[in-house]
Design a protein around this nucleic acid. Sequence first.
DNA 1: AGAACCTTATCACGTTCGTGTGAAGGTCAA
DNA 2: TTGACCTTCACACGAACGTGATAAGGTTCT
Lengths: 110, 110
Amino acid sequence: MHEPLTVGAAAAQSGWSARMLRYLEEAGLVLPRRTPAGYRLYGLAELNRLRTVRDLRRRFGVELTELAFARRLWRERDLREAVDAWLAAADDATSWVEWEQRKHERLLAA
Amino acid sequence: MHEPLTVGAAAAQSGWSARMLRYLEEAGLVLPRRTPAGYRLYGLAELNRLRTVRDLRRRFGVELTELAFARRLWRERDLREAVDAWLAAADDATSWVEWEQRKHERLLAA
DNA sequence: AGAACCTTATCACGTTCGTGTGAAGGTCAA
DNA sequence: TTGACCTTCACACGAACGTGATAAGGTTCT
C-alpha cells in the first residue's frame, strides 16, 4: 500500500518537479534512499518532509538556503553558540521597532 | 574616549566599507543610532556586532541573509516551531552520513 | 525489443545577494 | 566659505539561487 515512490511519482504526489526533488537532495533538505540501481525512493517520511518544506516556503517565505542554514545551526554546536551570542547582543528592542517601521514604509513605497 | 564613530571612521576601524555598513543596516543586522541631522553613529555595541558578523562569515562562511534568517528564527515563534518540527523529522542520522560523504567527494572533484 | 521510466551532466535564464562607484545634495568645523 | 565629511539614490556587475529543458545513457516491465 505505502510502497516507496520513485522520483516522478513523488513529484506528482508532492507538487514539486522531479528536477526540484533532485535539487532538494543536493541541497541536503530531503534525502531519499536509493535502489541498488541508483533510483531515488521516497517513503512517507520523505513525502512528509517535502510537504513541510513546501509549507515553510508558502507560509513564511523561507528560502531553501535558509532552511539549509537552520539545519547547520541544528547540527554544529559552535556555530549555534556563536550565532546565539550575536543575537543576544544585537537584539536591543529599542532601536529595533523604529527600524522595522522604516522597513515597512520602504515596502509600501514599491 | 569612546565617542560614537561616524560611518567612515567605523568603517576604517571595523574593516568593512562604509557602503557595507549602510547595507548591513538595511539588512537589519547592525543598526546604528542617528544624530539629529541623520548621521549614523556607531558606539561600542555596534562596533562589536560588526566584528561578530565579520567573524561569523570568516569562520563559518555564514551569509548575511542567513544571519537575518537566524534573527527571524529568534523573533518569530511560530516560524521557529515549524522549522524545529521539520528538523526533528528530517534528521535521521543514517542516510545523512553517506550524503555528507558524497558532498565531500563532489567538492573534491572541483 | 521497445516503451517508459530512471540516472548524471550541462546550458540557459531570471532573480537576489554582496559590493563598488558615482551623482546630487546636506552638515560641520576651520 | 570652502573642504571633508555625511546623506539617499541609482547603475553596474559577478556570483549564487531556483528552476526548466535537453542530451546521453542505464533499468525495468511487458
